[in-house]
Write a protein that binds this DNA or RNA. Structure first.
Lengths: 109, 109
DNA sequence: TTGACATGCAAGCTTTTACTTGCATATTAG
DNA sequence: CTAATATGCAAGTAAAAGCTTGCATGTCAA
């Protein structure tokens, strides 16, 4: 019984896939080839990661001839935030987290 | 190189572990035995899941004699929200997500 | 101390995940 | 048509995850 939320969580649980989402966030509509260039993976590996992201509905694609354009779909990420993360929020933590980010630098592996 | 964020994402990528967090959110300070009762897993399986959650700093423990009390630590969840999810937010989606939750019911598997 | 209770440790098994290699299909340009 | 380009499919391999079983350690109560 893998529901939709579970697919999203599992899709996000890989740094390579999160990097692909970052890349699509920065540059929407990239092809498989373009996405592969920014990664240290073969084209096939990237393709399989994209399939996972598509299954979780985090990425939507449009075919254009022999190319496949990839777009980030932020809705599932937002659903995770609204339906799951919000349950665990405590009011004050926003400010603390912001400070922590400032001190640490804002990168994600 | 698994950084802190990656441990958190991976820890959250399992429905059983998310249920444990839910349980600790509802009832803080539960022992391993108490947490096991609400799950369809053996004590050892729950113990191993809790170890993953502890490694990600999502759960903090206090020893009390022969018991070990478990507490949810919301800070890493908030860090994920603030440092990663926030990047993908689009202003209007909050209202839409709230409506979607209302229509679907608010459960997580 | 002794027995019951709560948790810890570790080996072994099964399933899933991540990745690679090799070939197939589809599209565009000349 | 033909060659180059862009992607798809599938089998195979290696590593990681999830779970179980069996025994060990530590604590409390009588």
């Amino acid at each position: 019984m893998t529901d939709d939320m579970d697919l999203v969580f599992k899709a996000l649980a890989d740094a390579g896939r999160r990097r692909l989402l970052d890349s699509l966030h920065a540059t929407p509509g990239q092809t498989l080839g373009a996405l592969t260039e920014g990664q240290q993976m073969t084209r096939q590996a990237v393709s399989q990661h994209l399939a996972v992201l598509e299954a979780a509905n985090l990425v939507t694609t449009v075919r254009r001839g022999r190319e496949k354009l990839h777009y980030l779909n932020p809705v599932p990420i937002h659903a995770v935030q609204a339906r799951w993360i919000a349950k665990f929020e405590r009011p004050r933590l926003d400010a603390l987290a912001a400070l922590k980010i400032k001190l640490e630098g804002d990168d994600d592996g």
